[in-house]
């Protein structure tokens, strides 16, 4: 058991293994997003009430889903780091945070643009919107806290603890449209129910969500790899990597 965990937590092993997956993740993610965008923008039928403004769904929903999934991933990494002191988990959490913040901002921004023609306002203090705005501030707080400590380990622990405190916001976001009477509509996708849209509308959305997940994985892995190099520029294998040029890229 322990040798496996140590191997998984080894930066060198991670760097080598992830180098093999990375081209596949970049390629398939980009392909799905291009296909989903073209399909959603040009070929999906317009909504019978919202017309063509509904096409914002193809970036709004994936961004919102990824904003929350990224936070959940950071919370898992934080537990692994705090309990087993595996530094790679901390590096991955740190690498994911800016992407999560960008996706939260993206969801809020595209939602505001969607709100103008459909709700008649770009912002309301309803439970879904407010809890998403709160998550943006928690993301920014985690990133600021990490850099505010003199010792890296202190910053890493503080960021991990704030991440675990912030997890309470995830169920609030998810159930905000159920618990409160919100202007925001309910969930688009559900595991137990059939989508309330025809396949020609939800299939491109599914492609987008999958593509966003693949790109999230690629970005987080690539940024974690950079953090590994940044932290151990003197390691012999990192030196060999820099000399060899294309090794492990």
């Amino acid at each position: 058991m322990w040798p496996i965990i140590h191997k998984l937590g080894s930066p060198k092993w991670f760097y080598t293994m992830s180098g093999r997956w990375l081209p596949f993740l970049w390629g398939s993610g980009a392909l799905l997003i291009i296909a989903g965008s073209v399909w959603g923008l040009a070929f999906a039928p317009p909504d019978y009430q919202q017309g063509d403004s509904f096409r914002i769904i193809y970036v709004h929903v994936p961004a919102a889903i990824l904003a929350q999934s990224c936070f959940a991933m950071m919370a898992v990494c934080s537990v692994i780091f705090l309990v087993w002191r595996i530094k790679l988990a901390d590096m991955a959490a740190g690498a994911a945070a800016p992407f999560g913040a960008a996706m939260t901002f993206s969801a809020l921004f595209s939602g505001a643009l969607w709100g103008v023609p459909t709700w008649g306002t770009w912002w309301v203090w309803d439970a879904r919107l407010t809890s998403m705005l709160l998550m943006l501030f928690i993301y920014l707080g985690i990133m600021a806290l990490r850099g505010a400590f003199a010792s890296r380990d202190g910053g890493a622990r503080a960021a991990a603890i704030l991440t675990l405190v912030g997890v309470i916001n995830l169920p609030i976001i998810k159930y905000s449209v159920v618990w409160w009477n919100t202007l925001h509509q309910g969930a688009t996708f559900s595991i137990t129910e059939k989508p309330a849209m025809p396949a020609s509308m939800w299939l491109p959305l599914l492609l987008m969500v999958l593509g966003f997940y693949l790109l999230f994985a690629a970005v987080t892995i690539a940024r974690t790899r950079n953090e590994i190099i940044r932290r151990q520029p003197s390691a012999r294998w990192v030196r060999a990597l820099a000399q060899g040029g294309r090794n492990g890229l």
Binding site: S37, L41, D52, V59, F99, A102, S106, L113
Partner: peptide, 23 residues
């Protein structure tokens, strides 16, 4: 976008643009 261009295109530009920027 049948009149919705000012809403649809900036939404796509910001969201997809941030993905490209991170990559």
């Amino acid at each position: 976008m049948n009149g919705y261009a000012v809403y649809v295109w900036p939404a796509f530009a910001v969201v997809l643009g941030s993905l490209v920027a991170f990559a």
